[in-house]
Design a protein around this nucleic acid. Structure first.
Lengths: 105, 105
DNA sequence: CGGGATCCACTATGATACTG
DNA sequence: CAGTATCATAGTGGATCCCG
């Protein structure tokens, strides 16, 4: 979801905006995930200022490669909303919904 | 992985064969997952005999719908093995590998 | 063989508080 | 704002034993 949202936001975003774009995502999980993505080389972290903090996360070229199939999956989800609803109908626990495309601020 | 393997095995399989086709999958997890898939209507469970037990799991039409994007993902993985390796190179923990296609018995 | 039930070590994650 | 640290807790999955 972070990769997808980052892509949706044009390939890069500041942490605050990114988090607000994914309702339900805690600061902890976001930071943790971004660290992993950074470690694997999918995302790049740039610090522009210390005070006030100004950081920018952006997709690396490798990250863009991985965004591709993710986007395909999102598109598939849109095209098959009916199949997804068929699932949710039988679910007891509330499932994580697909982040709406309009969620991007 | 279960949906994918089930598809790989022709759309249906007995539990034993299915489990052997996915090395590392415990009986508990397989059964648990199959129950969920069954509950959501992606997989069908048919009991042919009680003694000795003879059960067959097969993809439902809805299940086949969900297998599509999964297959696309697997194909993507094959086409981008290089990108995947780039990831694993930076990983500390052993990651779950893509079930080899030949794994099907 | 298929699969249910238990026990249990580990992991994951939200909440909360703190720092520069 | 961006991020870290700590804690309490729910969830996860393997190991094991049992049944028909």
């Amino acid at each position: 979801m972070i990769l997808h949202t980052l892509h949706l936001l044009g390939g890069s975003s500041r942490p605050g905006r990114l988090q607000r774009s994914i309702p339900g995502l805690s600061k902890k999980m976001m930071t943790q995930t971004l660290r992993e993505l950074e470690e694997k080389g999918l995302v790049c972290r740039e610090i522009h200022q210390i005070m006030p903090p100004n950081v920018e996360y952006s997709l690396t070229s490798l990250g863009k490669v991985f965004v591709e199939p993710i986007e395909q999956l999102y598109l598939w989800g849109i095209d098959h909303a009916d199949a997804l609803e068929a699932l949710e109908a039988n679910e007891s626990r509330t499932a994580a919904s697909i982040p709406s495309l309009e969620a991007a601020e």
